[in-house]
């Protein structure tokens, strides 16, 4: 079976996200001062061959823990769909 994972990686809430902060400020210039707290992360998609959805989830977690996400500064979550 083949699955597609949609992974969201975000800077930890407690950490300053300078990129998000800069974008938040520029919202004022657009006249969109109702928008605040912009935070910018990464969206990663990938395909994984696995015996089951659980197996696929296990592999994606491993990829996130070992390479895609640095848990000192980021957190991740993902959705899996069979393709």
């Amino acid at each position: 079976m083949k699955f597609k994972a949609d992974i969201d990686i975000m800077p930890l809430e407690a950490l300053l996200d300078p990129q998000g902060k800069a974008v938040s400020k520029s919202m004022d210039n657009l006249g969109l001062d109702v928008i605040s707290n912009v935070r910018i992360g990464k969206h990663i998609t990938l395909q994984v061959s696995a015996k089951s959805k659980e197996d696929a989830a296990e592999k994606v977690s491993q990829a996130c823990d070992k390479l895609l996400c640095n848990k000192i500064m980021e957190s991740y979550k993902f959705d899996l769909k069979e393709v």
Binding site: P18, I72, M73
Partner: peptide
């Protein structure tokens, strides 16, 4: 730091 030989991490400079 990424390899775990040193603790902590290096983030984007606070002034971007």
């Amino acid at each position: 730091c990424e390899s775990g030989l040193l603790p902590g991490a290096l983030l984007h400079n606070n002034n971007q």
